[in-house]
Amino acid sequence: MESGGRAELRALMARLQDGDRTAFRPAFGLLWPRLRAFAVRYLGPADGEDAAQGALLRVFSRASEYDRARDALAWALGIALWECRTLRRQRQRRRESPVAPPDEPADQATPEEAAIEGDLRVAAEAILGTLRPMDVETILAAAGGPRAVQGATFRKRLQRALARFRLAWRARHGNE
């Protein structure tokens, strides 16, 4: 997305966070194609569409918590990334055990595991939102998204982006 669109989305999300419903439709119009394109590239057309819808609903559901200081697109893509990874994990589990035994709870996350996963997801999204847009794009690309550059340049960028992510994580959460 060009910087003008990014800034517009940021302004629209800030208005939605404030409760301005007139910003909903333009924000939807900007977000949906980008989330769908991202998720389809990551997971393919069928699963990508599902993940993009889940991510879109989650983004709007959490619009009241949006931090104006953060880049809205990076924040939304962070949510989409987690949605994609969750869906892919679910699909992999289903492929591994097509018919799950009814009294075998090992494949299902316990409520505690689900709560931990949820906390980690929120924490990682929060950290992603504080990084520079290029770092977010690089991390997302490493997770299967589109790559603007290849080879050694990409590896170097990824190394730096992950270092900044780790630094931000430690600054917020310590060495957990």
Partner: peptide, 14 residues
């Protein structure tokens, strides 16, 4: 339809 669901999600979030 998706826009309507997203709007509902937004209102529930608020």
């Amino acid at each position: 339809l998706l826009e309507r669901r997203a709007r509902r999600a937004y209102e529930l979030g608020r």
